[in-house]
Computed example of a mutant assay.
Amino acid sequence: MQIPLQITLRDMPHSNALEAYIREKVQKLDAFFGRLVSCRVVVEVPHRHRQQGNQFNIRIGMGVPGNELVVSRDHHEDPYVALRDAFDAARRQLENYVRRMRRETKAHAPEHVGHVARISQKEGFGFIAGPDGNERYFHSDNVASPSFDKLKEGDEVKFVDDIGNEGPQAKRVSVGRHHVPD
């Protein structure tokens, strides 16, 4: 980091252990993304008169090239849990920042259109014939819309291919009229 780490503990006693924990978490962020410009961590105990036990608020500000990423986590009774959750969120923000810098997007599995070839309502499974003519097993848990008990043979379905222990499977199965990709 170009600017040294800033740690602020508000309305609570100084804790070397808490500071060491914060430094360790920041080192992990810096190892993941070596271009951190700065990092400020604030741990505070807000004043709440009618509430038992201390509640900790965490705020992490990370300076990155051309931007600042901020994470806030409020009201947890254990400062280490609050810090863990906040640093997990900070890591996710850094991952998203890196993806945006690289102009990457998350890849989604391609969807296919087929029809229910065979179904066993009693057993809770069936087979879908895909556009390639091959059948894929599916289970009632993989049906997104409508419910499994409303499916019948011949229904047109949209699904995502998957490979299971026994061979090709369909997951995220949904019913309705679907556009077949060219």
Rank of each mutant, 00 (worst) to 15 (best):
R91W: 14
L69P: 01
G164P: 05
L36N: 00
V173S: 08
D132A: 03
R59H: 07
E111R: 07
D78W: 10
N57E: 15
Q2P: 04
P131Y: 03
D155S: 13
P79Y: 03
P168A: 09
D132L: 04
S147D: 15
E135K: 01
L18I: 03
D162S: 11
Y21G: 05
G63V: 00
E153H: 08
T105H: 04
D78A: 11
A117E: 11
H139E: 02
V41P: 02
Q55F: 12
E77A: 15
I119V: 00
H108T: 05
V71R: 06
K150P: 14
G126E: 02
D74I: 12
R40S: 12
P46T: 02
M101Y: 08
S145L: 03
K171H: 08
V70L: 13
A129V: 11
N165H: 15
K150F: 10
Q6E: 15
A17Q: 12
G176Q: 11
E77G: 15
I3Q: 07
G130P: 05
G126T: 02
R103D: 04
M101N: 08
F87W: 01
F32H: 07
R84V: 14
F148T: 12
P181M: 05
E19D: 01
K171P: 06
H112W: 03
H47W: 10
K150A: 09
V41E: 05
G176K: 02
D141V: 05
N54K: 15
K122G: 02
R48P: 05
S38P: 01
G126P: 01
I58G: 07
D30M: 08
P110E: 00
D182L: 14
E24P: 10
R50P: 02
G167Y: 11
T105D: 08
L83W: 12
R40E: 14
P65K: 00
M12F: 10
A82Q: 05
D88I: 07
V43H: 01
V160A: 11
Y97C: 04
L29Q: 02
K158Y: 10
R177Y: 15
D149Y: 02
N142K: 12
G176S: 03
I128Y: 12
C39M: 03
L29G: 03
R103T: 04
V113L: 02
R91T: 09
A17W: 09
A31G: 07
T8V: 13
Y80T: 07
L9Q: 12
S15I: 02
V175T: 10
G164R: 12
E77R: 15
E24M: 05
M1Y: 02
V64H: 04
F138M: 01
N57K: 07
A117L: 06
R102I: 07
E111S: 09
M12D: 06
D11N: 15
N134L: 06
S145Q: 09
A90H: 01
F148G: 04
V143E: 08
V42N: 07
R99P: 03
Q93I: 13
N142R: 12
D11C: 03
R99A: 14
L151C: 11
V37F: 13
V43S: 09
Q55G: 15
D182G: 15
F159M: 03
S120W: 01
V116F: 00
H47E: 14
